[in-house]
């Protein structure tokens, strides 16, 4: 019998997450530590200062995921955990926990690439996605333009050479005093602003497949310093438009050049409403399908880890128990 029920674990950065996914797409439980009150449930043992203290939250989150899924530990067929890229200490917590459970339950362990997991988030909601696909993976830590030719086969066409798109959102929000997290705040405020009010730079828009968002961030800083009276809604909307413009222009061009059938978003910035709108419009204009995962699937979660793990296990078999954390792991490419 193929391994079908996968317990996924994600601890690469801020979130401690666990999920149970059957057959690569049927999500039975998807638990993220920031969403559950571990403190109330397990009684005051969790230090609140250390937001990345995965070691304190990993087992409560796994137990919660199993409970929600209604499955017993002996019904888990394999355990998948993110082993990179990310913070080495954070990754090791998830990897070690996953190996221990795999050993105790005598099931395969699968080390999963966090970036590959993001790409599989879309397949959780649209298992029949047709390839080749052009995927914009846009988050706080990453900005990549990817051609997905088939399952587990990718080409990284381009990536940011400085700041990630999500980071630019966050830092501009700070300049505008909008608080944290900055992405949703800019998204909301932009609704009241004029996206054409300020012509912020579209760096590298017509130059290859790479991105640069450091310049637009500095341009916003300079504009606000020199024009303190500009309505901040106009600044936010114009900034957001500049970022969406570059992302969508390149994705569209890539889809045309590589004969993709669809445009897909992944990562936290995929929750931005203007970016979603622009991708939908571009897809409609070019006769492509647009895949816009739900917000829960855009941000870091373990369901996507379980899904990617399911595909990897079928293709490559289990990972060795000597597999370590790799903070600089890259997306496997042809």
């Amino acid at each position: 019998m193929p391994a079908d029920v996968i317990l996924g674990i994600e601890t690469s950065c801020d979130e401690t997450a666990a999920a149970v996914v059957v057959g690569g797409s049927d999500v039975r439980a998807n638990v993220v530590s920031s969403q559950i009150d571990i403190h109330a449930k397990y009684g005051g043992v969790v230090p609140e200062v250390a937001s990345r203290a995965h070691v304190d939250t990993i087992m409560p989150v796994v137990e919660e995921a199993l409970e929600v899924s209604g499955l017993r530990p002996d019904e888990i067929d394999a355990v998948a955990a993110t082993h990179g890229p990310g913070l080495v200490g954070a990754l090791l917590v998830g990897v070690s926990a996953a190996k221990a459970m795999a050993l105790v339950w005598d099931v395969p362990f699968i080390g999963v690439n966090h970036l590959e997991a993001h790409l599989y988030a879309s397949f959780l909601e649209e298992p029949d996605l047709e390839m080749p696909l052009v995927i914009l993976l846009v988050s706080g830590g990453h900005t990549m333009l990817i051609l997905m030719e088939d399952h587990l086969r990718y080409r990284v066409l381009g990536a940011t050479v400085d700041d990630a798109a999500g980071e630019a959102f966050d830092k501009v929000a700070r300049v505008l005093d909008l608080g944290y997290p900055g992405g949703p705040a800019i998204d909301r405020l932009s609704g009241d602003g004029d996206p054409a009010a300020i012509a912020f730079p579209r760096a590298m828009a017509n130059d290859g497949w790479n991105f640069s968002f450091s310049g637009v961030k500095t341009a916003v800083v300079n504009h606000v310093r020199k024009n303190p009276d500009t309505p901040i809604a106009d600044v936010a909307a114009s900034f957001q438009e500049a970022v969406a413009d570059v992302l969508v222009t390149k994705a569209r061009k890539a889809a045309r050049e590589y004969g993709a059938t669809g445009l897909c978003l992944a990562g936290g910035v995929a929750a931005n409403s203007r970016l979603r709108e622009r991708v939908s419009e571009a897809a409609a204009a070019d006769g492509l399908r647009a895949f816009l995962p739900s917000r829960a699937m855009c941000t870091d979660n373990a369901a996507m880890v379980a899904a990617a793990g399911w595909w990897r296990l079928a293709a490559d078999g289990p990972s060795g128990l000597d597999l370590g954390a790799d903070p600089s792991l890259r997306l496997p490419t042809d």
């Binding site: 950065c13 890229p85 990310g86 913070l87 988050s139 706080g140 830590g141 990536a159 940011t160 050479v161 400085d162 700041d163 990630a164 999500g166 980071e167 966050d170 830092k171 790479n210 450091s214």
Partner: peptide, 9 residues
């Protein structure tokens, strides 16, 4: 490319 470590730390 050396990219910003703000989110990846």
């Amino acid at each position: 490319p050396v990219t910003s470590p703000t989110f990846t730390l």
